[in-house]
Design a protein around this nucleic acid. Sequence first.
DNA 1: AGTTCGATCGCCT
DNA 2: GGCGATCGAACTG
Length: 214
Amino acid sequence: MLKNKVPWPDQMGVARLLRESRVLPRRFYVRDTETVARELLGKILVHQGTAGRIVETEAYLGLGDLAAHASHGLTQRTRVIFGPPGHAYVYLIYGMYQCLNLVAEPDGTPGCVLLRAVEPLIGIEIMRRRRRAARRPEDLASGPGKLTQALGITLSDYGADVTRGVLTVRALKCEPPFEVAATARMGFTDQADRPLRYIVRGNRFVSGARVRGA
DNA sequence: AGTTCGATCGCCT
DNA sequence: GGCGATCGAACTG
């Protein structure tokens, strides 16, 4: 459906992107986590002169979801997950990578969406500089750690309100159609439960796209 | 205060 | 396909 002709050079200018999109309002996030995760696909993540189209997400639920950080209750690290929606939950993984989540559900109810991959749209030269290891466009942001590295998102963005400020998520006024596929979440062996990973079907910027078909 | 280990990535064989 | 990097949150005693 969607041809990913795409970007080594930027696909669209910043000005045009801002003109043709709007920031997602808080009410977008005040829904169940799975819905938010699914609907975040196709939206644009913007941070400091770089932007990418979200093509892969994972839903992490509340107390019943043993894979979710929030399942162990409210702690210093996870407190933002229990707070108002539309905020960033960033955490350090393996001592060297950072993962970006967006908080969903009403205030007081835990739930967040891990952003796992974006299709680079703007600031690609900046992304290349930040990600020296990336040999191809597909390597720039096709994983949660790569994504934050490419867009320059760090722990200092913890708690940031993504409905205003330097880190935002925007919806294109004219969003191209695409198909959503749901799979098991990555990194878990005991994943016999519901498929909570969502991807834009056929998109080459999804993590692991070269190892699987999806 | 000491230990364990992870919602990953990139390099090695 | 395997493994080491690197560090703080969370848990143990």
